[in-house]
Design a protein around this nucleic acid. Sequence first.
DNA 1: GAGCACTGC
Length: 663
Amino acid sequence: MAQGELKSSVLNRKRNPKSPVASRSSKRQKIAEHRKSLPIASEEEHLIKAVQKNDILIIVGETGSGKTTQLPQFLFNAGFCREGKMVGITQPRRIAALTIAKRVAEECDVPLGQKVGYAVRFDDTTSSSTRLKYMTDGFLLREALVDRLLSRYSVIIIDEAHERTVHTDVLLALLKKVQRERISPLKLIIMSASLDARVFCDYYGGAKDFHVEGRQFDVDIFYTVHPETDYVDAALNTIFQIHSEEEEGDILVFLTGQEEIESVERLVQEKLQHLPEDERKLLPLAIFSALPSEQQMRVFAPAPIGSRKVVLATNIAETSITIPGIRYVVDSGVVKARTYDPNKGMETLDVVPVSKAQAIQRSGRAGREGYGKSFHLYPERDFWKLEDSTKPEIKRCNLSNVILQLKALGIDDIVGFDFIDKPSRSAIVKALAELHLLGALTDDCKLAKPAGEQMARLPLKPVYSRALILANQFNCLEEMLITVAMLSARTSRNHFVSVEGDHLTYLSVYRDEAKAEKNMRKWCKDNFVNSRSLKHARDIYRQIRGNVEQMGFNVSSCGDDMLEYRKCLAASFFLKAAQRQMDGTYRALESGEIVHIHPSSVLFRSKPECVIFDELMQTSQKYINNLTRIDPLWLAESALIITKQMSDFNASCLNTTSVLSLV
DNA sequence: GAGCACTGC
């Protein structure tokens, strides 16, 4: 999202007219010409006919076809927005929803928020006159909770469906059901890049597919002859080879993470020192999501005349941002990927090979502005061995939130739900059991009233929602709201260390910044806190505070009584408790895994006997992070309640009895 | 004594 702000501000600057009167008509003319030149322009009639004839249409179009900006306008002109109905277009990312809506409003020559608008979390520009509504897929899912049949839409377009985010996958299944149940017709359009259109056609019972040509410049693809033992070293050599042998144009290198990027940045600098003066004109720049915005901004500026940028990026540059000037791509062939093991309740972050689709997507980044070249750091035969596409997220994430949403939508049979790719049975069972233990589901797996309904309404991880509900009873709701907002925003915590743990430390950070009443950016800089994530935490706080007040909760503070607050944390996070062993390691009580305190935790050195944690992730070791010290006796109290709950719980939903072992 | 790729409500 911050990257998006950068991108749009760059666009805005370009657009800034010198003479408003003269530029307006020439701008209109330019827009009309641009629209006419798009590959999709000649297909308007065909497309509209196809939509009229088919309730479900799969549109396959590559980058540059104009499908996302033009099709909604075609539908509007063909009368699909009569009688107040809307065309809804979903995107996996906020920035896309935002920039595309602005673009289309400009093309229609209307102010944003009238006929054309966008709606994303914290930022809804739509009005009663909006007919073309761009939004994130998550936003449409939230709307479905309020209006189950999505009755205001005549057409819903799911864009970038090939990315297969959890939200997209849930929508694909939900819309199939909604379409059957609706009395007024709902047209459904799935838009995807070409590789796996068949999957969608089959899923919708042989739905018709429609191909639109893309418009990309040619990219020459190169592979190594032999496998590389060290891709960082290979990347370095390739960068300097391009720099010395190829024509002008910037280089984009795909690497796995911050540490690796920073080390390559240093190595490039070092190597440059050994080159003759006139060959040193190579400017390494890093970009990854944790980088402060000011530094991210630097990759968007053109390189000084006569020199060449080499942008060292994570997969943030694959889809989220487009960097101008790139003509050469170097693909390491690997990516950091997150997977979830439901049996251990643990996430893993591994370096794994990219998929074919990902490798192709990376190459495509060289052909945005002209002919380009892409260098893969592996042999072609290895490319053919890659998976076709990345495993859909729904098959590798914790399902508790998805299932809670589905239950709130009235879908009770999760195992039988018509997912395009079904999550494993054990992942479903685990999530059901977790939701039951958190009090969101009844013994027969129905949404509990009112706790489950309240938890489904809150845009938070279920365990955070649970903490808020309990905090209401423990009279520390104010403190817990701040805590879960900071945890959700994944804010950093360097100063203001509390001996009780990370949760209270977060609380101090949030409150101290609020007290400072100074410029937030300056405060953040002085205190080494990422201002982007702190602002995000404030937005979340405001939103969920509004939510709980609507539910009739009274937002009260426990003042200095942090004992109540910690008891409340223990009662909420009892599933994520760990106990110190003789050797100083910890045992996670639910799974029995031996874990370590993450070095970034404020409790890293103090090693208390018993803690609750927010997250268990395996990287170089199994680490627990975001901890608070608790009294083990408090867990026993929770465990007693669990024991009773579990004995009542429908056995078919349950195979995780290990929780009981903690007493 | 490590360091988390990326989204989203």
